[in-house]
Amino acid sequence: MATSGSVTLEAPFESSKPPVIEGNPEGFKERFLRKARENTVVPIGCLGTAAALTKGLYCFHQGNSQCLQLKMHAWIAAQGFTIAAILLGLASRP
């Protein structure tokens, strides 16, 4: 069961550098921008989700439970919108 020889563990990627995709001439930034242009609704949904969560956390910090409840509902709705945008984007691909 055990094999002889030494095993070296290497990190699969460096977190300080963007990932390198083999066989793809475009970089991470170019690919991200291209994907965002192909389906513009997904980044909007992601920003809406992040905004609702941030505002909800602020309301939590302030102790405003009514505002917190409203923002958490908005957060879940924004997540649903984002998932629907992703699925519709995948379904509309040729």
Score class of each variant (00 low, 15 high):
Gly89Glu: 07
Glu14Phe: 02
Ala78Asn: 08
Gly89Ser: 09
Phe32Lys: 14
Thr3Gly: 11
Leu68Ala: 13
Ala74Asn: 06
Ala51Gly: 03
Ser6Cys: 05
Lys35Trp: 13
Tyr58Thr: 10
Leu90Ile: 07
Ile44Asn: 02
Gly48Tyr: 00
Leu90Tyr: 13
Pro12Val: 10
Ile21Ser: 06
Glu14Gln: 04
Phe81Thr: 02
Gly5Asp: 10
Leu87Met: 10
Ala52Asp: 01
Ala36Arg: 13
Ala84Asn: 12
Gly63Thr: 03
Glu26Ile: 08
Val20Tyr: 10
Pro19Gln: 03
Leu70His: 11
Pro12Leu: 04
Asn39Thr: 07
Thr40Gln: 14
Gly80Ala: 10
Leu68Gln: 13
Cys46His: 01
Ser6Asp: 12
Pro94Val: 06
Ala11Pro: 05
Leu33Ser: 10
Cys59Leu: 01
Met1Asp: 11
Gly89His: 05
His61Leu: 14
Gly89Thr: 03
His61Thr: 11
Met1Arg: 13
Glu14Trp: 00
Phe32Ile: 10
Ala74Lys: 01
Cys46Ser: 06
Ser4Trp: 05
Asn24Tyr: 11
Ala84Phe: 06
Tyr58Arg: 13
Ser15Pro: 04
Leu9Trp: 12
Gly63Arg: 09
Gly89Cys: 03
Ser4Arg: 08
Ala50Thr: 07
Ala74Cys: 05
Leu70Met: 07
Val20Met: 04
Leu33His: 10
Gly23Gln: 04
Gly45Ile: 02
Tyr58Asp: 09
His61Trp: 14
Ser15Met: 10
His61Arg: 13
His73Tyr: 01
Pro25Glu: 15
Gly45Ala: 07
Arg31Trp: 00
Cys67Ala: 08
Leu33Val: 09
Ile76Glu: 12
Gly56Ala: 15
Lys17Asn: 06
Glu38Val: 04
Thr54Leu: 12
Asn24Leu: 09
